[in-house]
Every structure is written in C-alpha cells, then in structure tokens.
Simulated assay, not measured.
Amino acid sequence: MRRHGPDFKKEVVELAQCPACRGKAVIKGVFHDLACVQCNASGWVVAATGEELPVDELVTQLSLRLQVAQRQINELKHPRATGPEVIYQDNNRRGAGGSNRTLD
C-alpha cells in the first residue's frame, strides 16, 4: 500500500528512562553535572531500542504522555457516579420546574 504525506494520527512511541543518567538528564562530571549525550539531555529513550529521540519528536512524545496523564488526573479528581448513585447525582429534569425527581 502506498502512502503519501504525513500520518493522520501521530504514533505513540513507548519511552523508557535513559540507562546512562537514570532519567535525570544529567550525569556527574568531575566538578559539575554534564548533559547526558545518550538521551539528548531529556532522560528518555525509545524503550524498544534504547536510542535517543530527535528533539522535535521528543517534544511531541512527551506532550502526548502529558495529555494522557492530565486526563487520568481529571478523571481521579472528578469520578463519575455509577449504579444507583447516578439517579441522585445527575438532574433528570423530571420534577416540577425541571428539577430532579428521584421517585423515592
């Protein structure tokens, strides 16, 4: 199958902490910290190969991971009601003047 142009959806690359700097982005020099050259001073490498990502691709991959983490945080902050609790939490607009009616 031939394809032209960019992909419609960005592929998520599985990342792992850099083994050289252990995810810290710097390594200890004799007198001061040095930027890790194995991971482009990011602390992340491709999990499957252990290779560094180009900076532009790294920014995109970290942004995708951050978006997933933000969604998880929001879901934990605002859990959705399940079971019989849904009747009492959501307004079903069946009461007088559009108020909630629970049929208790």
Rank of each mutant, 00 (worst) to 15 (best):
A48K: 04
G23Q: 03
T49F: 01
N92K: 08
N91A: 02
Q70M: 03
A35D: 15
D56Q: 06
S42G: 03
L53C: 03
G23Y: 04
V26Y: 13
A96Y: 09
E75G: 13
S63M: 07
K28I: 10
V26L: 00
T102S: 01
S42H: 00
I87R: 03
R71V: 02
H4P: 09
V46C: 15
V30I: 11
G50M: 04
V37C: 06
D33A: 10
L76N: 05
V37E: 02
P19A: 07
H32V: 13
K9D: 11
K24G: 00
Q38K: 00
C36Q: 08
V55N: 00
V86K: 10
A48H: 06
K24W: 03
P6R: 12
T60E: 14
R2C: 14
A81G: 01
G23M: 04
L58E: 00
E14R: 10
V30L: 13
E11S: 02
P54D: 11
R93Y: 12
D56C: 10
F8E: 14
L66W: 12
R3K: 04
E85R: 10
G95K: 05
N74W: 14
V37H: 01
V55I: 11
D104I: 08
K77L: 15
H32K: 12
L53Y: 05
G97W: 02
G29S: 07
R94M: 06
G98V: 07
R2K: 09
D33F: 02
Q61D: 07
E57K: 06
D104S: 13
V55L: 09
R80Y: 09
V46F: 12
V30C: 04
G97S: 10
N91K: 03
D104Q: 13
C18G: 05
K10G: 08
E57H: 04
E14V: 15
N40L: 03
I73Q: 12
Q67G: 11
P6Q: 12
V46K: 14
G95V: 00
G43I: 04
K10T: 13
P19T: 02
V86W: 06
A81Q: 05
H32R: 14
V86H: 06
R2D: 15
V59T: 05
T102L: 02
P84S: 02
V46H: 13
D104N: 11
P19C: 03
P84Q: 01
L62P: 06
C39N: 01
G97Y: 03
A81N: 08
N92L: 04
E11D: 05
R94C: 11
P6C: 11
E14W: 02
P84G: 01
A48M: 04
L34M: 05
V45G: 00
Q61A: 00
Q72D: 10
R3C: 08
P79I: 11
R80M: 10
Q70R: 03
A47Y: 05
Q61M: 03
V26W: 01
G43Y: 00
F31H: 12
R101P: 14
T102K: 08
Y88F: 15
D90E: 11
C39W: 08
L58M: 12
N40P: 09
S99A: 12
S99C: 09
C21S: 03
G97T: 01
Q67N: 11
R101G: 14
L15S: 01
D7E: 11
K28C: 07
D33W: 00
K10S: 09
R80S: 04
H32I: 10
Q72T: 06
D90V: 07
V55D: 09
Y88N: 08
V68Y: 14
G43D: 03
L66C: 12
Q38R: 06
S99E: 13
